[in-house]
Amino acid sequence: MSIWEYANPRKFMATSGALLPWVSVIAAILVVGGLIWGFFFTPDDFRQGSTVKIIYIHVPAAIMGSSAWFMMLVTSLIWLIRRHHVSALAAKAAAPVGMVFTLIGLITGAIWGQPMWGTWWEWDPRLTAFLILFLFYLGYMALWEAVENPDAAADLTSVLCLVGTVFAVISRYALLFWNQGLHQGASLSMDAEENVADVFAYPLWTCIIGFVFLFVALVLFRTRTEIRARRLRALIQRERIA
């Protein structure tokens, strides 16, 4: 099995069609199970009370918000280098999903920040970098919409994705220079001394893995839609010529 086989849309449609129900069911079980576990079967935090429970949405959404951009970077590169059409469509399909995850991360963060930090929004490097990532998603999607020729659109958005990645990373570190920040550091690392207590970490990991499956399911679904839309376009054009 190699990804080049799936440059053939027929093959991709067959495989993704078979995988999609499984991925969706696993995503539903993990997300719903993880959220119920997290919301009802974990104790309240000593200081934060029950507000801590938003972590089960906030952290997975934030992780997927930035991972989705990374996935778009990889698929864009595959398209630019090898003209893998399904790859370009997957990047297009992932953008709105990633944007929504980023937005969920921002909004849940604001809802949590209001009682805990006493503010909805703080110009903290991590928060601001996420807001900028959100703007990148908007620009990327707008460029897809604006260019009429699908191949040219795929090329231009891929170049934008590459340049945007570089600037998103530079911005992330530039923001650290600008403001020291309020957001807590990583607390799920494998190598850190002090992490989130296991009682919270297990449901959290369940939710994170569930969100990964959710993302895969949504992207597969949207890529299939894009391929069908592309086929429909081709059919209409053929009709017009005939």
């Binding site: 900028i132 703007l135 600037f167 530079i170």
Partner: peptide, 10 residues
Amino acid sequence: SLLVLPLYVP
């Protein structure tokens, strides 16, 4: 402007 302004951040 939507594309360029986020790139101007740093």
